[in-house]
C-alpha cells in the first residue's frame, strides 16, 4: 500500500506487512511461553518497578511481537527480576526467563 507523503514523521500505524518481529520469534523458540499471553495486565499491575518507571511486561512482549523492539526493551530495563509477575500470571508464563532472553538479545544486537 502506498504511504502518502503528507506527514513528516513515520506512520504511527502498525503495519503487519512490514513488521519485523524476528526478536520475538527468536525468544519464542527459547521460551515458547511468550506466545501464551492474553494481555490481562496482572504482571504490570503487580510489578514492583512500575511505581518508579513505566515497566510493563505485557506491553513489552506485545510491542516486541509488533516489531517495536526498542520501545519494548525500554519497558523492561527497570525490571528487578523479583518474580511477582510469575506468581500472578494466570497463564503460568515464565516471565523472568523471557525478560532475561529479550535483554540478552538486546546485548547481542549492540
Amino acid at each position: 500500500m502506498t504511504e502518502f507523503g503528507f506527514k513528516l514523521s513515520q506512520s504511527n500505524r502498525i503495519d503487519l506487512d512490514e513488521t519485523d518481529n524476528s526478536v520475538f520469534k527468536k525468544v519464542a523458540i527459547i521460551v515458547p511461553d511468550i506466545k501464551l499471553c492474553f494481555n490481562c495486565g496482572s504482571c504490570s499491575a503487580s510489578c514492583t518497578s512500575t511505581h518508579f518507571k513505566r515497566v510493563s511486561f505485557r506491553s513489552a512482549i506485545l510491542l516486541l511481537n509488533r516489531g517495536h523492539n526498542k520501545e519494548a526493551i525500554s519497558m523492561l530495563k527497570s525490571c528487578m527480576l523479583c518474580g511477582k509477575c510469575i506468581l500472578v500470571c494466570p497463564r503460568g508464563i515464565d516471565t523472568r526467563n523471557i525478560i532475561i532472553n529479550i535483554l540478552k538479545a538486546e546485548e547481542e544486537m549492540k
Binding site: S46, T48, S49, F52, K53, K77, S78, C79, M80, C82, G83, K84, L87, I100, L103, K104, E107
Partner: peptide, 28 residues
Amino acid sequence: ISFDYTPVKYNSPLKREKLLYYGGCMTN
C-alpha cells in the same frame, strides 16, 4: 545484561521506630 534503576527510590520519609518491618515483594 544492563538494568537501569535510576528512578527507583523510597520517597516518603518514615516515622522513626526501633522495629522496621520489611515485607518484600512476595508478602505483597
